[in-house]
């Protein structure tokens, strides 16, 4: 289940920096992580800490985008709350996808678009309620953002 806390949340972790100092090589062996690397960063995981980027050439995990670093951190550490404001709209489908397998809680300070990923089921922590349509989601999001 994807759970969202809208608005200010001082305890939410900042993924792009948290990832730098906490990632583990084994995370990249996961099929979903490799799919996210291809989808979000247009890059390909090769082996060890070697990733091939379309634009930058050979890169290390430290050179992945801030959004992808946050996505991977969320997926590999579902017990932690990350600020997914550093994730752009192209991360939305992966958050929905992760929420199908795991309970993850994210903080959002902008209205991430989930419109193209309906049907979904998201739990809005601020309101203690589920939303299942984009209309319900946006109605609650604009109360807090």
């Amino acid at each position: 289940m994807l759970k969202i806390v809208f608005g200010e949340n001082e305890k939410a972790l900042y993924g792009p920096v948290w990832f730098q100092y906490n990632y583990e090589i084994t995370w990249f062996h996961d099929e979903l992580v490799q799919k996210m690397i291809e989808s979000v960063d247009k890059s390909r995981y090769i082996d060890g800490e070697y990733i091939e980027s379309e634009v930058l050439g050979p890169i290390s995990p430290l050179n992945l985008s801030g959004g992808l670093k946050t996505l991977i951190s969320i997926y590999e550490n579902p017990e932690l709350v990350f600020d997914a404001t550093s994730c752009g709209g192209n991360c939305a489908k992966w958050l929905i996808e992760m929420g199908k397998d795991k309970d993850i809680t994210i903080n959002l300070k902008y209205i991430m678009r989930f419109r193209d990923h309906q049907p979904f089921e998201i739990f809005i922590v601020n309101e203690n309620r589920y939303v299942r349509t984009n209309e319900e989601y946006v109605d609650l999001a604009i109360k807090y953002i």
């Binding site: 960063d41 634009v55 985008s65 801030g66 959004g67 992808l68 996505l71 192209n90």
Partner: peptide, 11 residues
């Protein structure tokens, strides 16, 4: 500047 992840903002 905003938008999708991995468009090169931080770079």
């Amino acid at each position: 500047i905003l938008g999708d992840s991995a468009t090169g903002k931080t770079t």
